[in-house]
């Protein structure tokens, strides 16, 4: 069965949802989401440590989307907003889940998969070294990203990054990333 964005979105936005969004990922949208999640966490009297981690991870996840999403997706038939992405923040017991989703060109899968697997295989100290190495040796790309986002996220959580690539049409896959905090 081929991947269907509506079914996917319905599936991931089940449960104790704090925020669910699908559509254009713009700078203004990021402001709105951060503000709204911050208010909800304040209202829920969440521990400041958890709040900070979640907020930090949310910033990096959204900005990863912002920097990497393609404006248009050739050959995708559904009507999608430009720079289409998905974000869901929800609670499962004591754990927060941040899930992001976006279409990616199949040529990028190998790189991304290897990067995530590598990050998941490292200890906290190794992640720290990797972070410092990239920080000190890699230039910021014109897009603004520097390859640090996922490493930074992984440093801030005790859990592995969970990911999946759903085949959409051979050329495009839908990339799902779930971060637990």
């Amino acid at each position: 069965m081929s991947f269907n964005i509506t079914n996917y979105y319905n599936e991931i936005s089940k449960g104790d949802v704090i925020l669910a969004y699908k559509g254009s990922i713009t700078s203004d949208l990021i402001n709105d989401i951060l503000e709204s999640v911050e208010k909800k966490l304040d209202a829920a009297n969440e521990a400041s440590k958890t709040k900070k981690k979640l907020y930090n991870i949310l910033i990096e996840s959204l900005q990863n989307l912002y920097h990497h999403i393609e404006e248009k997706h050739e050959g995708i038939e559904e009507e999608l907003d430009p720079k289409f992405g998905v974000l869901v923040v929800k609670r499962e017991g004591d754990i927060y889940n941040v899930t992001t989703g976006n279409f990616i060109n199949s040529s990028r899968i190998k790189f991304l998969k290897e990067k995530i697997e590598k990050i998941n295989s490292l200890t906290k100290d190794e992640l720290k070294d990797m972070y410092k190495f990239i920080l000190n040796h890699q230039k910021l790309s014109a897009k603004g990203g520097g390859g640090l986002g996922l490493v930074d996220i992984a440093r801030k959580t005790e859990y592995d990054l969970e990911y999946a690539f759903y085949n959409y049409n051979g050329n495009y896959y839908f990339f799902n990333l779930t971060i637990k905090i």
Binding site: I59, L135, G145
Partner: peptide, 12 residues
């Protein structure tokens, strides 16, 4: 209070 990874390089 918060900084993102894009800022982290600039701060460096």
């Amino acid at each position: 209070e918060y900084f993102n990874t894009s800022s982290s390089k600039c701060i460096l």
